[in-house]
Structures are given as structure tokens and as C-alpha cells.
């Protein structure tokens, strides 16, 4: 039983670390990667807590589909925000957090 609780707390700590990484990483694509890592560790946590069906859907959704959605959106937004015809001083999507 001890192994179960150690596994549980380890997965919780890793999920919290990945969530803090989502906050702290300035590069948007890097934050999407941290979100994917959070999905992977959440899969492990769901299996540890005894929910393999949720782990299936979380492995597909949280580790692949959601970061792919974010990356496609980041690519389209970058093409629009830094597109031709823009005044050069305009801020791109990546260095927007740097002002804070």
C-alpha cells in the first residue's frame, strides 16, 4: 500500500511542476510542450487512482490532441500578427509576456 501512496504523491508533484512550467515558460510553443507533459503525467495519475478508461482518453486528448491544437493555433496567429503589411514595431505573440 505504501508504494501506491508514494506513486500518487510523486505523480501529483510532477503534475504541479508541469503546471508551474506552463505558467513560467515564456515561449508559447514551449508552454504547449509543458501542457503535453502535464497530460502524460495525468495519464499516469489516473491509472494509479484506478481509472484506466479516463487514462485512455487523457493519453489521446491531453498528450496529443490538445498540444497539436495549440501549436496549430500558434502558427496561424503568428502568420497573422507578424504578417506582411504590419508596422514593424508591432509585438509578436511570443514576446508579449516579456513585458510583464
Amino acid at each position: 500500500m505504501t508504494g501506491f501512496w508514494v506513486m500518487d504523491y510523486l505523480c501529483l508533484a510532477l503534475v504541479l511542476a508541469a503546471a508551474l512550467m506552463v505558467v513560467r515558460i515564456r515561449n508559447l510553443a514551449g508552454a504547449a510542450m509543458a501542457l503535453s507533459a502535464m497530460g502524460t503525467v495525468l495519464t499516469l495519475l489516473f491509472v494509479v487512482l484506478g481509472a484506466p478508461d479516463d487514462a485512455h482518453s487523457e493519453a489521446v486528448v491531453g498528450a496529443i490532441a490538445l498540444p497539436a491544437l495549440y501549436l496549430i493555433a500558434i502558427g496561424k496567429v503568428r502568420a497573422d500578427v507578424r504578417g506582411p503589411g504590419e508596422q514593424g514595431k508591432r509585438r509578436g505573440p511570443d514576446d508579449m509576456d516579456a513585458r510583464r
Binding site: 503534475v15 503546471a19 506552463v22 508559447l28 508552454a31 504547449a32 501542457l35 502535464m38 495525468l42 491531453g62 490538445l66 495549440y70 493555433a73 500558434i74 496567429v77 505573440p93 508579449m96 509576456d97 513585458r99 510583464r100
Partner: peptide
């Protein structure tokens, strides 16, 4: 203030 970062925050809340 970045809108994509804001949607990421919503994903963390869902988690």
C-alpha cells in the same frame, strides 16, 4: 495578457 496563454490557464483549470 496573451490570449493563447489565457486559454492554457483554462486548460490547467480543467485538469
Amino acid at each position: 495578457r496573451n490570449l493563447i496563454k489565457l486559454v492554457m490557464g483554462l486548460s490547467v483549470m480543467e485538469a
